[in-house]
Design a protein around this nucleic acid. Structure first.
Length: 504
RNA sequence: GUCCCCAUCGUCUAGAGGCCCAGGACACCGGGUUUUCAUCCCGGCAACGGGGGUUCGAAACCCCCUGGGGACGCCA
């Protein structure tokens, strides 16, 4: 019997996501239950979006949750490297094999042409997909184009008829017509593989036996299965988990919910409570126990007990659960220790102290001055936003625009934040002083406070986002209609500034 | 638009044909304990989306409808 091996394969393109932790948890439990191994692999083949900071954050978030892996980029293992960007040569040789055996082909189509094709197909009520333009390129033409160094990708060949049956641990076999499956790009023009290729190659080479992943992958499973077949490999067992949802049942997103694991850490949730809560999403203990540890979960684990209705990630129950952990499962001594570690984070204090030191006369001033760095969302009301120049609508607009603007910052650094907000205030033609007022209220709860720019830099993007959102709710919230209107206004603002730039 | 998945209280769920006029938990509402509040305890509210079958019997099985979600990128 072969050893069960599962993996979590996050892409380091942003804050560590609770969805990653969720999928990791189920992979972890499944592996542990079977005495197998759990592997961490970093899928950083997107050169543009991947970054090391995000990778580090993901690793520490998973460590915080005690979802430890047996092999991974930080600890190595027999099937490394565990970072896809370091495996280029492996993908190259595999893609060459596909090419040689006629299971893949070079494609020189431009993005513009493909866009056109897709548009036309949509208009004709067809399933959009590659039209096979470069599929039968004559050998001499191919040689010519390659010699001329024309940018190209490599696509996989996909049968045009018949159907693929996808077996899944949690549902009936899923039948998908091959005609529905696109001739997926396997290797991008930058020479790096796409998810589909890298994933299959790595899962095989890393001897992954069970792939437990989000339901969003079901439709691309045929591509993966076909690749296993092309390579002559045995495919792992597939299992597609339900997706975590926002309150409106759409796929969990940072726009509608705090999704960053860091946010929950900063809010003072205990990792065991967060894990316990994630374990309750789509799964339950056989005896109905609600408070359970990962070990309890492993001891009673049965993947078949996963229910497929997408669970709403509603933190009310998490709050209750976290409260129980805090008051029932840890001693006073442990409470003191863990609270202290949480509150008096050395690094954070080093950032905070220079801001408050000029403003204190006694240590007793510190709590009032720096309390908001630790508190979740400040206690504010609509009245907190009263201002002689700004109406509540103005404040709402500023907060929403600020939230959007901050999303586009490439590095979370005080100078970048300052620059972004100054630009925004300029475009809105509001004095920076006035512009910053509602931001102060949202972040610090009061305008009598340390620099809000530095404060945001310290509390982080996830917490900033949560506080801005809370402030908007306090101000009456933004309806779908308003949001659309604001979005339009926001885009126009930047379109205008773009024109001005072009004119220079 | 095309394809795929899903469907029990507001939310998380139990339920693998009779134990279910559906059980637990959160939230909410009452009551008790507490100098207050919280905790804690007790009680209440509240669901099988609709329609057809199959069966002696259906929340459970089948079909249709409806609803929700996802996928359709040189992103993962």
């Amino acid at each position: 019997m072969t050893t069960v091996r599962t993996r979590i394969a996050p892409s380091p393109t942003g804050d560590p996501h609770v969805g990653t932790a969720y999928i990791a948890l189920f992979n972890y439990c499944f592996a542990r239950q079977h005495g197998g191994q759990f592997i961490l692999r970093i899928e950083d083949t997107d050169q543009v979006r991947s970054n090391r900071k995000s990778e580090d954050d993901i690793l520490s978030a998973l460590k915080w949750l005690h979802l430890d892996w047996d092999e991974g980029p930080d600890k190595g293992g027999p099937h490394g490297p565990y970072r896809q960007s370091e495996r280029s040569a492996i993908y190259q040789t595999h893609v060459s094999k596909l090419l040689e055996e006629g299971n893949a082909f070079h494609c020189f189509c431009t993005a513009e042409r493909l866009d056109e094709v897709r548009k036309q197909q949509m208009a004709d009520k067809q399933q959009p997909g590659y039209d096979g333009h470069c599929l039968h390129l004559p050998a001499d033409q191919l040689r010519e184009k390659l010699a001329a160094n024309i940018p190209h990708v490599i696509r996989m060949k996909v049968p045009r008829e018949g159907k693929c049956v996808v077996h899944d641990m949690l549902r009936e076999p899923v039948e998908i017509d091959w005609a529905q499956v696109d001739m997926q790009v396997l290797m991008k023009s930058d020479g790096l593989p796409t998810y589909h290729l890298a994933n299959v190659v790595d899962d095989h080479l890393m001897q992954i036996t069970h792939v437990i992943r989000g339901e969003e992958w079901i439709n691309s499973a045929p591509k993966h299965l076909l690749l296993y077949q092309y390579f002559g490999w045995r495919a792992p067992v597939l299992c597609h988990m339900p997706l975590l949802r926002n309150a409106d049942r759409s796929k969990l997103s940072k726009r509608k919910n705090p999704t960053s694991i860091g946010y929950y850490q900063k809010m003072g949730y205990l990792p065991e409570a967060v894990i316990n809560y994630l374990g309750m999403m789509g799964w339950s203990m056989p005896d109905g126990t609600e408070m359970f540890s990962v070990q309890d979960m492993i001891d009673n684990f049965d993947i078949k007990r996963v229910s497929l209705g997408g669970p709403v990630f509603d933190t009310e129950k998490l709050d209750w659960l976290n409260g129980r952990y805090l008051r029932e499962s840890i001693s006073d001594v442990e409470f003191i220790q863990r609270f202290t570690e949480w509150a008096f984070d050395r690094e954070k204090l080093h950032a905070i102290v220079p801001l408050i030191k000029p403003r204190v006369e006694r240590f007793s001033d510190v709590v009032n001055l720096a309390g908001f760095f630790l508190s979740g969302v400040p206690a504010i009301t609509a009245e907190s936003f009263n201002h002689k120049q700004l109406s509540p609508e103005d404040s709402l607009r500023i907060l929403q625009f600020t939230a959007w603007k901050l999303e586009s910052i490439e590095a979370w650094h005080r100078d970048r934040i300052e620059q972004a907000l100054a630009a925004l205030a300029g475009l809105l033609d509001i004095r920076i002083r006035d512009f910053l007022f509602p931001v102060f209220i949202a972040i610090a709860g009061t305008a009598v406070s340390t620099s809000v720019i530095d404060s945001m830099a310290i509390v982080g993007l996830d917490m900033t986002r949560a506080r801005l959102r809370h402030a908007m709710v306090v101000l009456g919230g933004v309806s779908g209609k308003q949001s659309k209107k604001l979005e339009k206004e926001y885009q126009q603002l930047f379109a205008l500034s773009q024109e001005a730039d072009d004119g220079q």
